[in-house]
Amino acid sequence: MSNSQDAYFIPEPSRWPIVGTLALFTTFIGGGMMLNGSGFGTFILGIGIAAVVYMFSGWFSDVIGESLAGSYNKQVDISFRWGMSWFIFSEVMFFAAFFGALFYIRVLSVPWLGGEGAGFATNMFLWPDFQAVWPLLTTPDMSLAAADSKYLAIKEVIPAFDVPLVNTILLLSSGVTITLAHHALKKEHRAPLCWWLAATVILGFVFVFFQMEEYAHAYHELDLTMKSGVYGSTFFMLTGFHGFHVTMGATMILVILVRSMKGHFSSKDHFAFEGVAWYWHFVDVVWLGLYVFVYWI
């Protein structure tokens, strides 16, 4: 294949896809064994995750190499853009499943359990003393005999205008810093580019740190855990997956920072930067949804 602009770019056969498949396969086998209670599974899971990391670094260094060698034309760039946009959309839908569950539980199923509408029979026959409130500190089965419940009563939930507010400010500022980095890149101002990126990475990881502190606090002092009934379930599912995405995003920005320091990217040609920035904004927007519907109202 020639590399000229008007011809197509088709990559040579590559071993990374099959490596990635095997790596994920190993991860799933290890994860499954671990969940079934086999200690050996944890070991396999570790190997699998290491292999996934190996695959990503190998695959991306191939792509970066091709990009630096000038093999990519405008068309490849646009393909990457479509790819990244729709990948982010699929992530939106993944979170939508959990937000949907949250809304269903808050708006429909918890009130039904409390005896509203069609739920009056369930309430009357199973848990007549259960009160539908949100945040749901005690579960329906606790209204019969708290000691027999397989769930844990929550002492208190995390107030919105505390660390979560700080975290909101951190993430929103990181959205600003990455935009400033982008402006610096467009003007080919290398030093501010790197500094703004570094600030973004730090803001991201500080967010993750606070989130971990908050989890520790919730588990140790508030009895707010995954086992605290449906409030804990939705809380940890949403914030947990979000925190994971922040970690991934911050790591990706770190890679972009290192590449910027090495002099990669030009004012016109920097899709990797933009793709990661889109991802970061997406993580940001999900957080706003979380902040409003999980912590605040």
Binding site: L35, W112, L113, D141, S149, K150, K227, V230, Y231, S233
Partner: peptide
Amino acid sequence: LTDKFFGTAFFDAAGGGD
């Protein structure tokens, strides 16, 4: 998966889910 292994209550009415 989390209902089965991590004690969440999404689909368990006794825990407030459905």
